[in-house]
Design a binder for these strands. Sequence first.
DNA 1: ACTTTAAACGGACCTCGGTCCGGTTGTTCT
DNA 2: AGAACAACCGGACCGAGGTCCGTTTAAAGT
Lengths: 221, 221
Amino acid sequence: MTGSVPPLFPPSDAQYGPADLTLTPAGEPPTLRADAARNRTRLLEAASQLMSCCGATDLTMEAVATAAGVGKGTVFRRFGDRTGLLIALLDHREQQLQAAFLSGPPPLGPDAPPVERLHAFGPAVIKHERDHHELILAARTDPVRNYVVPAARLRLTHVTMLLRRANAEGDAELLAHTLLGYLDTALVHHLVVDRGMPLERLEAGWHDLVARLTTGGDTAA
Amino acid sequence: MTGSVPPLFPPSDAQYGPADLTLTPAGEPPTLRADAARNRTRLLEAASQLMSCCGATDLTMEAVATAAGVGKGTVFRRFGDRTGLLIALLDHREQQLQAAFLSGPPPLGPDAPPVERLHAFGPAVIKHERDHHELILAARTDPVRNYVVPAARLRLTHVTMLLRRANAEGDAELLAHTLLGYLDTALVHHLVVDRGMPLERLEAGWHDLVARLTTGGDTAA
DNA sequence: ACTTTAAACGGACCTCGGTCCGGTTGTTCT
DNA sequence: AGAACAACCGGACCGAGGTCCGTTTAAAGT
């Protein structure tokens, strides 16, 4: 990967600004130099643009660089590698989903009892994955990297928290991994697309799983 | 990938001979031409050799070809791509595990009640994955491909069968996917290596999961 | 044994991800 | 403002995966 200087995944890319691609990175490295930030935005826009017309698998680093009007080295400096760029792209699209289950309206958001939120979580994630499966799948080169990605960490802590609040018996973190494993994009894609499994069946399976894993009491302690 | 002529993953590579690398492919294309079969063996041996000394990630197709005394094109013709070669290598190493749960002694093999076999299945797979994690992880470039690989299909049908025989309620296939998801190499590796989770905890989680998913009656119907 | 045919072979060739380093440009401190 | 410094930029360069096509060769038919 990068020699060693860039702090393991360049400037982090955890959260940015509010909505559009006008993302002002506010990660670990206090601030990005003006030109660097500008180029970062350009690159993400260019990548997004190219992706929507050519598909994720054909997205070339050099093409992105050219489209953004910068050198290839700049792309790698900013995102580490191709996967890093895709993840950054993805991370941005995830924010909508994250907002939905972190602070959205009831079935998913905090104004519903935890078990209910869990039930709603599955279909929401599946929907999201179906919308972006190409990008998600393309961003999955290194299998272990998925667990390190901020979005994945967030989902894990979220589901773990819901399980705890639901007073589920057992190892909450491992149960959360189990639930998230069921929602794995590759699995869902394989079942639905490759094997033609109807969505209803998949979602029924989810609800069944949630029911099985959340035993030990309702929100009412 | 390959133009189109090779029948989607060249000559299949499902099962071969009994034990050693003296594998005589007996897949779908009736037989391989003599020289092709010979080269196939040579290539697998060379790859295995190189891997044990240089690691899977540094395994170069050209190096394998050279070590086997054939041209690079031959490697690709036979295995489709790098991942195909790694999968073939892996498939071979899996046979020991497969034999264990298909026809081995009791806790795992057919002479034990299904629920007991399921309980034994987890630790066995985890053990296997720990032994070969480098190769397994290296073979995982395309996330969906895992579900198509014969070894994975076999595990799925096996676990599904065990669940059915255990009279587990619910969608056996989906429950099987859930169980196998828990055993995902990348997940196990992440938890144990990256996050230092003790094996005992992981296995306890497995037993708990099996217990939860196999409700509805014992073998005694 | 000879012809025929389809498959296997091999290595030149192309593409693309990733690295490197000399030059450039913000940023900060005095 | 000017200098010093660190970070950024860019594109030449490298290595490895994957493709192509002319040549060779095993297997089947006569």
